[in-house]
Design a protein around this nucleic acid. Structure first.
Lengths: 208, 208
DNA sequence: TATCAAACAGGACAACCGGTCTGTTTTTTG
DNA sequence: CAAAAAACAGACCGGTTGTCCTGTTTGATA
């Protein structure tokens, strides 16, 4: 070990970047290993930071978990579902494309880690009221966006279907499908559910 | 503290009952708190046993977890889904009744703890291959039973629908619905999904 | 430039975790 | 009925966990 040439890396003193790096590492770790199986020391090591830095930005592990849900997980749901559905031509189109896009990205990756929201929802909902509230809020935004798009679709005349209920089924089907996908490490459940869901969505348009 | 009148409870030396009690406590604890959040000491204390007894029947925590999945969780799925669906008049009838029965039992209980299979599937599938295999097997038995019932239904003429795919959607919808129910601590998502799913199931019968 | 708070570094700690070990009691076996 | 095996009791251990504490360095402020 040559010590003479080793200089300590200077501190960057960029609190925003530090906080972002912690959230990056934490959200990735929580998704792949889960909240309880990830220790604060794991996060410190993977992020290359010390306990002081972690404690400064997130005094407790719980506060870090809440920040991951409110900032990273919410943003992920927005990118994968909320924005695509809003921009889509029709609700059905946006929903089925979201399924397909996620299924494709799963095939590209080696492992199926599951939906970050669903993972934390199942693990932490009953563990803590604050976690539950944070998770519920993201689910709510997700569901209501789909419901709004369904209402906006001109092909569905008012009263024939219940957009809020149909949106709930879509979210539930996706969450369950990705849970199945995680269990059998395959994207097939996602594609299967998309196909079957498509029948209901197209059927609702002309039958109600 | 009066010690003179205290007698040590005699050992029962009933290994089957001891093993059953451990599985009772463990499966209940795993469902309400999750696998990783439940310590072996928790189980020992709640079951009123010592480390020696626990280690004798289940040398490792993992072996206990596998036994819970293979014996208790599998049995729970059989009782709540597999047997009711087999005995039902039609597949649609059995499926919707299973949703409704579970929703009712959730209302009776104070808390929504989620589906024991789904909980452990999400928490442990990526953590260990043996857990994944055990979970997948239960999912498989569940799905194939529904698919078989769908095939047996005379109202669905052959080729019009894909029973295996429809069964996957049913299981996924239920798993996701109960995840939503757990998140918002309400049985509503379950009832909503049952209603929406009913449209697809009845529609499949006469339209395909 | 002196002052002060924010932003880290890094060690320490009590509690806890899963697993092991030795010993004792009961049942089963030969 | 002796011997062996099974079924426990209960203490113990090394490693890990989340959190806290004391410094030190930097940027903001006045």
């Amino acid at each position: 070990m040559v010590m003479g040439s080793m200089r300590k890396a200077k501190r960057s003193y960029d609190p925003a970047a530090m906080r972002a790096r912690i959230l990056d590492v934490a959200s990735a770790a929580f998704q792949s290993r889960g909240y309880h199986s990830t220790s604060t020391h794991d996060i410190m090591r993977e992020a290359g930071i010390t306990g002081g830095a972690l404690h400064h930005h997130f005094p407790t592990k719980k506060s870090l978990g809440l920040a991951v849900i409110n900032e990273r997980v919410a943003a992920a749901v927005e990118e994968a579902w909320i924005n695509p559905v809003r921009r889509a031509r029709t609700a059905t189109d946006g929903i089925l494309r979201a399924f397909e896009n996620i299924a494709e990205s799963l095939d590209k990756q080696g492992k199926v880690l599951g939906c970050p929201l669903n993972n934390l929802a199942v693990e932490l909902s009953t563990a803590d009221p604050e976690f539950q509230a944070a998770v519920t809020q993201v689910f709510q935004a997700w569901t209501s966006t789909i419901a709004e798009k369904l209402k906006a679709d001109k092909s569905q005349f008012a009263g024939r279907i219940k957009p809020d209920e149909l949106a709930t089924l879509v979210v539930a089907s996706y969450s369950g499908a990705i849970a199945l996908a995680k269990a059998q490490q395959s994207s097939e459940p996602l594609r299967i559910c998309a196909r079957q869901l498509g029948k209901l969505l197209s059927g609702s348009a002309d039958r109600g």
